[in-house]
Design a binder for these strands. Structure first.
Length: 132
DNA sequence: CTTATTTGACCCGAC
DNA sequence: CGTCGGGTCAAATAA
């Protein structure tokens, strides 16, 4: 794969998978707390997700983050993909939630009731106007 | 102490 | 059969 368009093996990504994941400086001179100038904010869908992985996909030269629903019974998964240096995000929802409806409010993931099967096995895209 | 997050390594599938 | 690539889990750390 890479042989076709990979003049210089980008790092040593290949193999171990984890190798690809590098870069990503969430750390800044500031200790913490950001006034809020620029930061990647992902569209809150009302559910709470737990990040379980992040990798740089050399195939598309983009960073992909892997999120999973907090609930164990929830097979819902979320993938966020963005370009290194571009604010546009591509969110892909996979699977369906099995617990309650998303209380639009952040952190409102509680509340049960009907089946909140909002997402099917289809993929949705968010904010990718410039490219794609 | 508990929970969320991070990074690395391992695994599986495809080629 | 070997390697690449992507995906997930696990451990460690920070809050």
């Amino acid at each position: 794969m890479a042989s076709t368009s990979e003049p210089t093996a980008p790092g040593s990504g290949g193999g171990g998978g984890g190798g690809g994941g590098d870069e990503q400086d969430r750390q800044a001179p500031w200790p913490e707390e950001a006034g809020g100038s620029e930061q990647l904010v992902m569209p809150e869908d009302g559910y709470q997700w737990k990040k379980y992985g992040q990798k740089f996909i050399k195939n598309i030269q983009k960073i992909r983050s892997y999120f999973r629903c907090r609930d164990k019974r929830c097979a819902a998964k979320k993938k966020v993909e963005w370009h290194p240096g571009d604010p546009s995000l591509r969110i892909v929802y996979e699977g369906a939630h099995q617990h309650g409806s998303p209380s639009s409010s952040t952190g409102g993931g509680q509340g049960e009731g009907g089946v909140g099967n909002r997402y099917e096995l289809s993929a949705q895209y968010f904010g990718g106007p410039p490219a794609q």
